[in-house]
Structures are given as C-alpha cells and as structure tokens.
Amino acid sequence: MRDEHHEELARRAAAGDRAALETLLAEIRPSVLRRCSRFLPCYQDAEEACQDVLLQVARNIGGFEGRSRFSTWLHVIIANGSRQTYRALKRRAAEQGYAEMPVDVPDARTTSVIAGSRLDLLDALERLEAARAELVAPMVLRDICQLDYKEIATHLGIPEGTVKSRIHQARGQVRQYLLAGL
C-alpha cells in the first residue's frame, strides 16, 4: 500500500505538483536514511548522503518517467549518492593530509567489523568501477538494494541474463579485491 502511495506521489511530483513532491520527500526520508546507513556505517555520513539523495530526488523528479517503479529509481539514487558521499569523504581526508579518514572518537568505522567491511566493500566497488564500470550497478542493485533481477534488467535496459552474468562477474572481482586486502 505504501509503495503505491509513493508511486502516485512520484507521478504527481514528476508532473510538477510541488505539494506532492514535499509530501514524498518527507515520507521517504526515514527509509532513505536507513538505506544510506547500509552503505555508510557512521550516522553522520549516512545523514549527509541522505540529504544529498533527497536533493537529487527533488532536482530530478521531472525526469522520472515511470518506466520503472519509483522505488527502483530511488534505490539507484541512494546507491549512487551513498557512494558519492563516501568518495567525497575520502577526498576531504586526503586533502587534509590523512592516509585514512580521521577518527577523533571511537566510532563504527573502527570499532565494528561490519562497519569496516562496509568501507572495504565501498573501496572494492570503487576499484571495480575503475576497471569495469558496467558491473557495478547490477551488483549494487542486487546485493545492497536487494532488487530482483527483473527490476534491475528493466531499470538498466539490459536482458535479465546479462544482469545475472554481470552480477556474477562483479561478485568474483569484488571478492578478489577483498581477499587481497585492497
């Protein structure tokens, strides 16, 4: 029921209904923040990514054509926004002269094995994107956003078999990166 409500709000917002856009953004915010947290283990980083995602939705809703579900469209923006936030955080740390992102107080990045593995995964995805960019989106949409193969194929405009093949190749490459310790 909620998904259908969001689909309707998205269609109205895409058609220029400002009130529908405001309602949509307010309603999806908790879910966007939760999903950004899947990528970024530090709450402040997830919050930054969430704000960027909501801004992207607001800016680009006019381009939502309804070919795929709004939730699929949103998952792509969340994945890209979270990865972009991570890259920006790494760039800021490097500009400040840190080899790694600085840690002043204990946080999830250094105290949690799960958090550390998320950051390792983001690094591995960065390497994969540099080597074989076409493999990243299918893997992220399947393994992190948990979309089914058919939704991914529809969104990317490629056959379902190609989606499965790319996911298989991406997983193998990411596994190698993770095992090699990046």
Rank of each mutant, 00 (worst) to 15 (best):
M1E: 13
H5C: 03
H6P: 03
H6T: 11
E7H: 04
L9R: 05
R11H: 08
R11G: 02
R12M: 08
A13N: 08
A14F: 02
A15L: 11
G16C: 05
D17Q: 07
D17I: 09
R18V: 15
A19G: 10
A19Q: 13
A20Q: 08
L21M: 12
L24R: 03
L25H: 09
A26M: 06
A26F: 03
A26N: 09
E27K: 04
E27L: 13
I28L: 12
I28G: 03
P30H: 06
S31G: 14
S31A: 12
V32T: 14
P41Y: 07
Y43P: 13
A46F: 08
A46V: 10
E47S: 12
E48F: 01
C50I: 05
D52M: 05
D52C: 04
V53R: 01
V53A: 04
V53N: 05
L54E: 09
V57D: 06
R59Y: 03
N60W: 00
I61P: 04
G62F: 01
G62W: 03
G62L: 04
G63S: 14
F64H: 09
G66Y: 08
S68T: 15
R69F: 02
F70I: 11
S71P: 02
T72L: 11
W73E: 04
L74Y: 02
L74I: 10
I77H: 05
A79P: 06
N80Y: 00
S82D: 01
S82T: 06
S82R: 00
R83C: 01
Y86W: 15
Y86N: 12
R87H: 05
R87E: 05
L89Y: 05
K90W: 04
K90I: 05
K90T: 08
R91D: 14
R92N: 04
A93E: 02
E95R: 14
Q96C: 02
Q96Y: 03
G97M: 05
G97T: 02
Y98L: 00
E100W: 10
M101T: 14
M101E: 12
V103I: 15
D104S: 12
T111A: 06
V113N: 10
V113G: 12
V113R: 14
I114L: 14
I114P: 00
A115N: 15
A115M: 11
G116I: 09
S117W: 07
S117C: 05
R118L: 06
R118W: 00
D120K: 09
L121S: 06
L121H: 06
A124T: 06
R127A: 11
L128D: 04
E129T: 11
A130P: 09
A131S: 11
A133E: 15
E134T: 11
P138K: 08
M139I: 12
M139W: 15
V140L: 12
L141C: 06
L141R: 01
L141N: 01
D143E: 15
C145D: 10
C145H: 01
L147H: 00
L147W: 00
L147E: 12
D148W: 03
D148E: 14
K150D: 15
K150T: 15
E151K: 09
E151Y: 00
I152R: 09
L156G: 14
G157A: 10
I158R: 02
P159C: 01
P159S: 08
P159V: 10
E160D: 13
T162F: 00
T162P: 02
S165E: 13
S165T: 13
Q169K: 12
A170S: 08
A170W: 05
A170T: 10
A170Y: 04
G172L: 08
Q173R: 14
Q176K: 11
Y177I: 05
Y177T: 07
L178S: 04
L179R: 11
